[in-house]
Simulated scan of single mutants.
Amino acid sequence: MALKIRLARGGAKKRPYYHIVIADVRSPRDGRFIEKVGRWDPMLSKEEGARVQLNEDRIKHWLDHGALPTDRVLRFLDEAGVSKREARNNPDKAKPGKKAQERLAEKKQKEEEAAAKAAEAEAAKNAPAEEAAAE
C-alpha cells in the first residue's frame, strides 16, 4: 500500500485549516486517512509557534514504513528538522515572458529616442544664444 503524508483541508469557506494525515495515495484529499499526525493553520502569522504542530515520533515511524511526504509537508518537516528537503532553484522563473521582454525593449528604445531629441533641442536652443553672445 503506497502511503503519503499530506494535507487534508478543513475549516470554513475562506478560512482554511489543514490536518497533516497519513493516507493511501488513492484516497481523496479530504477522505479516508489512516492517522492524523499534525495540523497547520495558515491563518496564523508565521512567527507563531502554533501555526504548525507535528507529532514527530509518529511521522518518523511512518517515514520508516515508506510514507512519502508531499512538497508542502516536506517543508514543514524540514523546518522541524525531521527530514531534509533539497533546495530547488529555477533562475528563469522570475524572468518576464517573450512578449513582455519585447515590450520592455520597445519602451527602452522610445525613451532613448526621446532623450536624444531632448538633447538635440537643448543643443539647438543653446547654439543661437552662444552665437549672439559672441557677436
Results as ranks from 00 to 15, higher is better:
residue 42 P to N: 06
residue 17 Y to M: 14
residue 25 V to D: 02
residue 2 A to V: 04
residue 88 R to G: 04
residue 38 G to D: 08
residue 108 K to D: 06
residue 33 F to C: 06
residue 52 V to S: 06
residue 109 Q to D: 08
residue 77 L to M: 14
residue 131 E to A: 12
residue 133 A to G: 11
residue 3 L to S: 01
residue 11 G to M: 07
residue 134 A to G: 04
residue 27 S to N: 15
residue 85 R to F: 04
residue 76 F to M: 15
residue 27 S to Y: 09
residue 19 H to S: 15
residue 50 A to C: 02
residue 97 G to T: 04
residue 27 S to C: 13
residue 83 S to L: 15
residue 60 K to T: 03
residue 121 A to T: 03
residue 75 R to P: 00
residue 99 K to H: 05
residue 24 D to V: 04
residue 24 D to T: 06
residue 20 I to C: 13
residue 116 A to N: 08
residue 119 A to L: 12
residue 24 D to F: 03
residue 59 I to D: 09
residue 70 T to A: 08
residue 9 R to C: 00
residue 4 K to L: 11
residue 28 P to S: 15
residue 33 F to L: 02
residue 56 E to L: 10
residue 116 A to G: 03
residue 46 K to M: 06
residue 131 E to Q: 12
residue 122 E to Y: 02
residue 116 A to Y: 03
residue 13 K to R: 15
residue 108 K to L: 07
residue 102 E to K: 14
residue 124 A to I: 06
residue 26 R to L: 02
residue 110 K to R: 14
residue 32 R to I: 09
residue 73 V to F: 12
residue 47 E to T: 12
residue 105 A to S: 05
residue 111 E to G: 02
residue 61 H to M: 08
residue 104 L to P: 00
residue 89 N to K: 09
residue 81 G to Q: 13
residue 127 A to D: 13
residue 14 K to I: 05
residue 110 K to A: 11
residue 86 E to S: 10
residue 66 G to W: 02
residue 58 R to L: 07
residue 4 K to E: 05
residue 9 R to T: 03
residue 73 V to P: 07
residue 71 D to E: 14
residue 57 D to Q: 14
residue 18 Y to P: 09
residue 95 K to A: 08
residue 124 A to S: 12
residue 122 E to Q: 12
residue 121 A to P: 01
residue 11 G to A: 07
residue 124 A to H: 13
residue 104 L to E: 11
residue 26 R to I: 01
residue 56 E to G: 04
residue 64 D to Q: 14
residue 88 R to P: 00
residue 53 Q to W: 05
residue 5 I to A: 05
residue 113 E to D: 11
residue 17 Y to S: 10
residue 7 L to T: 06
residue 14 K to V: 06
residue 19 H to Y: 15
residue 71 D to N: 13
residue 42 P to R: 08
residue 100 A to T: 10
residue 102 E to Q: 14
residue 29 R to D: 10
residue 11 G to E: 08
residue 132 A to F: 10
residue 101 Q to S: 05
residue 57 D to L: 09
residue 48 E to F: 06
residue 10 G to S: 11
residue 92 D to N: 09
residue 46 K to T: 05
residue 85 R to L: 13
residue 3 L to V: 01
residue 29 R to F: 10
residue 102 E to A: 13
residue 48 E to Y: 06
residue 125 K to E: 14
residue 57 D to V: 07
residue 84 K to S: 12
residue 84 K to P: 00
residue 39 R to Q: 14
residue 116 A to P: 01
residue 40 W to Y: 15
residue 96 P to N: 09
residue 85 R to G: 00
residue 120 E to G: 01
residue 14 K to L: 13
residue 6 R to V: 01
residue 58 R to M: 11
residue 1 M to K: 05
residue 122 E to I: 03
residue 119 A to N: 07
residue 31 G to T: 07
residue 86 E to V: 10
residue 75 R to I: 09
residue 117 K to S: 04
residue 5 I to G: 02
residue 47 E to R: 14
residue 9 R to I: 02
residue 92 D to T: 07
residue 133 A to P: 00
residue 125 K to L: 12
residue 78 D to G: 10
residue 98 K to Y: 09
residue 131 E to S: 10
residue 88 R to M: 06
residue 98 K to P: 04
residue 37 V to H: 09
residue 6 R to S: 02
residue 98 K to V: 11
residue 132 A to L: 13
residue 77 L to H: 13
residue 128 P to Q: 12
residue 25 V to N: 03
residue 40 W to R: 01
